[in-house]
Design a binder for these strands. Structure first.
Length: 586
RNA sequence: GGGGCCGUCGUUCAGCCUGGUUAGGACGCCAGAUUGUCAAUCUGGAAGUCGCGGGUUCAAAUCCCGUCGGCCCCGCCA
């Protein structure tokens, strides 16, 4: 070993020892007769000193050192002179007087400084990710991610789960996201698909008698990117046999609490609150409510129906909805600020945004005040008080929820309603099984086609399938969907019925999912599971605002890697071997 | 496919609205000075096709059009 210690290790206890350190030159402070350098490695920083009076040769050598040179030094640990300790550094009470300097590698001047608060554009960071990763912030996030996966493995191992790998080269499936395709040279004209999730394999594993499976599984979806979405991402994927919904919820809740506590030191409030999908939509306008702040959506249907305000009354008469947000102490917002909110609401799809300031004694201050009955409003909104601002949207229910749901998040950000270090996990339950897709004029599964309906809804699958509820559940943390799962269909007859409802013919079903239908006929156990979004979870725990910060080598929004410049064109020979011809449609 | 913001020395920003000096600051870089710094300091210096292309104009970093790239959002993400 070249080194005897890492760069965050030395303390007063090591004084007088001769040590050997390696690392990167973080900065140099040249005082003439003495040169200070911060030596950095993964663990931290130690100050090393080149003193011309003590070690003239190494001091002479040290003049060539520049940022990010890789060096090896041997020297004595000494206590720093009185008054020159650095309390901000764990190693700040000591330094190493260098006797021998060995330059292991030089470095060009870096395109940006290796420091946490360096203002650098992300594009440049990604192009030189090897430099970006040297920053302590990134080291911290890499380590956090490792801790999360490590704790996951510890927990699930102790609960009897087996870690099992499933294929990366697999079969394209018709439903869901776009597949990434991989041509097969051996089977010309045919393609593998990269898995969107290991869904079918984990079900097959249950049928294979594995009982409890998990995998830190890479998943691929060829869809557009967002700040919390990458084309390849990682799921903590798990499945259990002979379980009901409560079993999966209980075990995954316990697991999350364990991981988050052990990996990040965060204590989540337990038990996790639960909310139906209907409740989430009605109160928060989304299926992933951020409950770190209030600002719940208020229903004003009754009041609006009787209102003299034509927009409200006619909306109700036409079957629409009228709902509102109560902005606490919002009456002091300026008119121009409110005009800004109106524009924001329009941007979210609203035709308009009515507003009312509640003044002293429930006097209403608004351009529509004369149409509104203060007493009726007061009765409809028991939580509202003088000093508050009311924001109304009247439209069809879907738009009202969309607009108020997004406006709610906008206001939380804008008015700084979210206290830091607050954690709000939430189970969202009772999802509908199906929804009707106007575009294709057919039913589509809300979760996926293998999700079981509630037992009591089996009958209405035939008569009124849109009424059926799924045995599905989502885990929401601070407004992000960090997990989802369901109890699966384990009876072939029900699975066929489901495919029928989705408009998948028998032939199609057999061609695409035949192996599952076959397997279900040979004694498939009841089973269910869940998949957690590892990247999103680490992003939240790491208190960073982009999924790219917790993926070592992420893609940009155009799904490219700035460092490797993937994807790239390939040689004509490679294509020829695969019998692939490129056509350029213009 | 659509909407929004952004692009200026190595980096990060100002300048652009209201066209007109030599495009400016900070950090970094280079050279010199300096024995207790840790955002070291002091002195001096180098460094810019103003993303790219076209247009308007006597004159474009600045106005207009297009295009490329980055980010955010809608669609999409069973």
């Amino acid at each position: 070993m070249i080194r005897t210690h890492h760069c965050a290790e030395l303390t007063q206890a090591h004084v007088d020892q001769t040590v050997s350190l390696v690392g990167w030159v973080q900065g140099h402070r040249n005082h003439g007769g003495v040169i200070f350098i911060d030596l950095r490695d993964r663990e931290g920083v130690t100050q090393i000193v080149f003193d011309s009076e003590k070690h003239l040769a190494s001091h002479e050598q040290a003049h060539v050192l520049r940022g990010e040179f890789v060096i090896h030094v041997i020297g004595q640990v000494v206590r720093r002179p009185e008054g020159s300790e650095n309390p901000n550094l764990p190693t700040g009470r000591i330094e190493v007087e260098v006797e021998t300097l060995n330059i292991l590698n030089a470095s060009q001047t870096t395109p940006f400084l290796i420091e946490d608060d360096g203002h650098v554009t992300e594009a440049l960071r990604l192009r030189h990710r090897y430099l970006d990763l040297r920053r302590p912030v990134m080291q911290r996030l890499l380590r956090l991610r490792h801790e999360v996966t490590h704790q996951t493995r510890c927990f699930l191992h102790n609960r009897g789960f087996l870690e099992i790998e499933t294929p990366i080269l697999t079969k394209s499936t018709p439903e869901g996201a776009r597949d990434y395709l991989v041509p097969s040279r051996v089977n010309l004209g045919e393609f593998f698909a990269l898995p969107q999730s290991p869904q079918l394999f984990k079900q097959i594993l249950m049928i294979g008698g594995t009982d409890r499976y998990y995998q830190i599984a890479r998943c691929f979806r060829d869809e557009d990117l967002r700040l919390d979405r990458q084309p390849e991402f990682t799921q903590i994927d798990m499945e259990m046999s002979f379980v009901e919904r409560e079993d999966v919820l209980a075990l995954s809740e316990e697991m999350i609490v364990h991981i988050v506590k052990e990996a990040a030191g965060v204590t989540l409030p337990t038990p996790f609150p639960r909310m139906s999908y209907q409740e989430a939509m009605a109160n928060y306008g989304t299926d992933k409510p951020d409950r770190r702040f209030g600002l719940r959506i208020q229903d004003l249907q009754e009041m609006a129906a009787k209102s003299e305000f034509k927009v409200f009354r006619e909306t109700v008469e036409k079957g629409g909805a009228v709902k509102a947000l109560i902005v606490k102490n919002g009456a002091n917002l300026s008119r121009s600020k409110i005009d800004g909110l109106i524009d924001v609401a329009k941007g979210f799809g609203a035709k308009g945004l009515a507003w009312v300031k509640i003044a002293q004694d429930w006097q209403l201050d608004s351009v529509i005040a004369k149409f509104l009955d203060s007493a009726a409003l007061r009765q409809a909104l028991p939580e509202a008080q003088p000093g508050d601002l009311l924001l109304f949207v009247a439209d069809n229910v879907a738009i009202v929820h969309e607009v108020l749901g997004r406006l709610r998040l906008y206001l939380a950000e804008d008015l700084k309603l979210i206290e830091p270090n607050r954690w709000e996990p939430l189970w969202v339950l009772d999802f509908p099984l199906l929804e009707f897709d106007q575009e294709t004029q057919r039913h589509v599964a809300i979760h996926h086609p293998f999700t079981a309906p509630r037992e009591e809804d089996r009958a209405c699958l035939e008569s009124n399938p849109l009424e059926a509820q799924a045995q599905a559940y989502d885990l929401v943390l601070n407004g992000f969907e960090v997990g989802g799962g369901s109890i699966r269909i384990h009876q072939p007859k029900l699975q066929r019925q489901m495919f029928d409802l989705l408009g998948i013919t028998k032939d199609e079903a057999q061609e695409k999912f035949g192996f599952l239908l076959d397997a279900l006929q040979f004694g498939a156990p009841p089973h269910g599971g869940i998949a957690l979004g590892l990247d999103r979870l680490v992003m939240l725990l790491g208190n960073t605002d982009s999924i790219r910060d917790v993926i070592p080598f992420p893609k940009t929004q155009r799904a490219q890697c700035p460092m490797t410049e993937a994807p790239s064109s390939v040689s004509a020979d490679q294509l020829k071997e695969l019998h692939i011809r490129q056509c350029t449609d213009t």
